[in-house]
Design a protein around this nucleic acid. Structure first.
Lengths: 116, 116
DNA sequence: GCTAAATGGTACGGCAGCGAAACGATCATG
DNA sequence: CATGATCGTTTCGCTGCCGTACCATTTAGC
């Protein structure tokens, strides 16, 4: 199962997935928001605001605002770090897991439908 | 060269590509803008404002605004349809082609770097 | 304890995208 | 040639994200 594809297939995959997301009436996440979400779910914890800002090379308020928005959407949640109460630990949620699971299924589906 | 991947690989690919786009200091396109761009480059012409709006299931002003923005970025251009001057034909540009080519290369690169 | 550093959040003005509605130009129809 | 339909754009008020600067809380160092 090698993941090599041609440039055109890459574009067609991105197109199909993007089109599906646009057609979906759920509010779409910003590129930065999506990147934060994926980082939290794919990279080893703990995830702090400052750490995420450094990882993405963006300012802190970007992370704070994204956590506000995605917190409202229940995709992520904050927790105070009790060993160092200055830190905020960003954690996954059930809703976030389900969201990314559905997204991954969408990508796999569109990849499977790709012309050779 | 079958394009089947697992859910986790899909997420990791999207993460790697998104991260690269975020790190890039070029202004990122909206999901809708990117979808319009890919549609123009991948689907058979001609592309009109109304046609694109129907294809993406968005309102016309969304297309107009996206064309303004991407026109400024030289990724697309407008041309009046001379046979029916009410229509505007959306056309590719050299810069747009280069942009998508680089993007496709990025996706292919990140796909190749994916863990098995 | 007291100061300095570190962390996350907030305030502010600016900019861009959004939907709904109205508009001008162009074409089709009689 | 006059009326109505079609097409793209513009306007309006709104919302949300942006970066810069500043603030409150907590910890570290002396």
């Amino acid at each position: 199962m090698s993941i090599e594809f041609r440039a055109e297939q890459a574009l067609r995959l991105w197109h199909a997935v993007s089109m599906a997301l646009v057609h979906d009436d759920k509010p779409d996440l910003t590129l930065r928001q999506m990147t934060i979400l994926l980082t939290v779910y794919l990279e080893p914890p703990p995830h702090t605001v400052r750490g995420l800002a450094a990882r993405l090379d963006v300012t802190k308020p970007v992370i704070t605002r994204a956590l506000d928005t995605m917190g409202r959407l229940q995709l992520l949640k904050r927790r105070r770090d009790e060993t160092d109460r200055r830190n905020v630990i960003v954690q996954r949620t059930v809703e976030g897991s389900l969201f990314l699971e559905a997204f991954a299924d969408l990508v796999c589906l569109k990849a499977r439908e790709l012309p050779r």
